[in-house]
């Protein structure tokens, strides 16, 4: 297990290094800092102000090679900052990126956490329900609804939800965010509802397939022969055994709960980490964008390792080594 984890971490480190070099090529060599400076300073900024901005932000250093001081290059600076998690300041407005990340985690979690904790039980119970009523009209209607739900783009849910539930029925504010406890719930309700609707179809269908496959196995017949009822068979025998494929689906998502949902956050105006990425793209804030891509890569690797570890916990037959 330990050997496996070490090997996995080494692979992860190599991947991260690759991501960092790729980011460097993309954001330092391909895109020029002048673009960023002009966006940050506005259209009327004279060339002197642009030049000063480049100096103030360290973009005047040599890119890869500096004969005078090999460590005083943009590449060295980039690697040092990323690896030490010293992210520096935003290109757009000089706010420390670490502070922006701290500010964004709360709003992101306030949507992703309910979405995750409600979404998983909802999908599992609906899947159990349709699997339980397999071959009946409930099953068929359920599957048709699921296919329908998963075929519709998330954007349709978002805009439709805002229009129908926000504008026409006036149940929720159509967008916005406020961490004050008295109003937080009404801001979060609509994005969570939309997120649930958008995600539930695919999950229910997948889990149903898993459950159905499991319920055809020998141990299920044995359980029935022992006299266990349908409900008990589903809950006590099928569910735990179906967890492995469910886990693959679920554990990978956990690290990304922190980074939030890009679409939900930008459409609902939630100032989380997902919308930070979108804002950074729109405002040429490459410093923030680099950090977000880097963190995304780290979290993805973390998710993969977590999934592997979770296998061993759920299924004693799996040994990592």
């Amino acid at each position: 297990m330990l050997g496996y984890l070490l090997r996995r971490t080494a692979w992860g480190a190599a991947t991260v290094l690759g991501v960092l070099l790729f980011l460097f090529a993309l954001f330092f060599l391909y895109a020029t800092p002048q673009d960023v400076a002009r966006r940050a300073l506005g259209e009327k900024a004279p060339p002197e102000a642009i030049a000063q901005w480049l100096v103030n932000h360290g973009y005047d250093k040599p890119a890869v090679w500096n004969p005078a001081d090999p460590l005083d290059t943009r590449l060295a600076e980039h690697l040092r900052r990323m690896l030490l998690f010293d992210f520096g300041r935003s290109d757009a407005d000089d706010v420390p990126i670490a502070q922006r990340l701290r500010d964004g985690v709360g709003p992101s979690l306030s949507v992703t956490l309910p979405l995750f904790t409600l979404g998983l039980p909802l999908a599992l119970s609906l899947a159990l329900l349709v699997a339980f009523f397999r071959e009946t009209y409930i099953d068929r209607v359920g599957v048709v609804l699921c296919v329908l739900a998963m075929s519709v783009s998330v954007l349709v849910y978002i805009l439709g939800g805002q229009y129908l539930l926000g504008k026409l029925l006036r149940w929720f504010p159509i967008s916005g965010f406020d961490p004050a406890p008295s109003v937080l719930l009404r801001f979060v309700a609509l994005p969570v509802l939309v997120g649930l609707l958008a995600g539930v179809g695919a999950n229910v269908r997948f889990y149903r397939a898993v459950f159905l496959e499991e319920s055809g196995r020998d141990y299920v017949r044995t359980a029935r022969a022992k006299g266990a009822g349908d409900a008990r068979v589903m809950a006590r025998h099928v569910l735990p055994n179906a967890l492995i494929p469910v886990l693959t689906n679920v554990v990978v998502e956990i690290p990304f709960l922190f980074t939030g949902s890009i679409l939900l956050e930008s459409f609902f105006g939630i100032p989380g980490l997902g919308s930070i990425t979108v804002d950074a793209i729109q405002s040429n804030d490459f410093a923030t964008l680099r950090v977000m891509v880097y963190l995304g890569a780290l979290l993805f690797i973390a998710g993969q390792v977590l999934t592997d570890v979770a296998y061993t916990l759920v299924d004693p037959r799996v040994r990592l080594g």
Partner: peptide, 8 residues
Amino acid sequence: ACSNDPYP
């Protein structure tokens, strides 16, 4: 949750 008022 059921109100569209975005202010306290």
